[in-house]
């Protein structure tokens, strides 16, 4: 049961949130020009990271806002919480 720090509400239990999967996947604008493989990659393919994973969460049963986190998939440590649209943050070594 993760403890996630919603940027607007503070630390709350995982059950208040929904996970939106991997972050930083940008929707292609010129999709009509993409071949099936490239479009399929956007729609279906996700990384399966061991280590730092950048992912989207929504405080669904709270303020309803989306945000990003960096989480270690091995220890579940939350390494960063940052805004939608921000670049991947520098992480402490």
């Amino acid at each position: 049961m993760l403890l996630l720090a919603c940027p607007w509400c503070g630390p709350r239990s995982e059950e208040e949130f929904s996970c939106g999967g991997e972050g930083h996947i940008v929707r292609p604008l010129a999709s009509a020009e993409m071949d099936d493989a490239a479009w399929g990659d956007y729609v279906f393919m996700r990384t399966n990271t061991k280590g730092v994973h950048y992912e989207r969460w929504c405080h669904a049963n709270g303020c309803g806002r989306w945000f990003n986190i960096a989480r270690s998939t091995t220890t579940n440590e939350i390494l960063a919480v940052y805004q939608v649209g921000d670049n991947k943050p520098e992480l402490p070594k």
Partner: peptide
């Protein structure tokens, strides 16, 4: 509603 929110907040701010 979740679907609409996710697009308006994250992809089309």
């Amino acid at each position: 509603l979740d679907w609409l929110e996710s697009w308006s907040q994250t992809e089309w701010p």
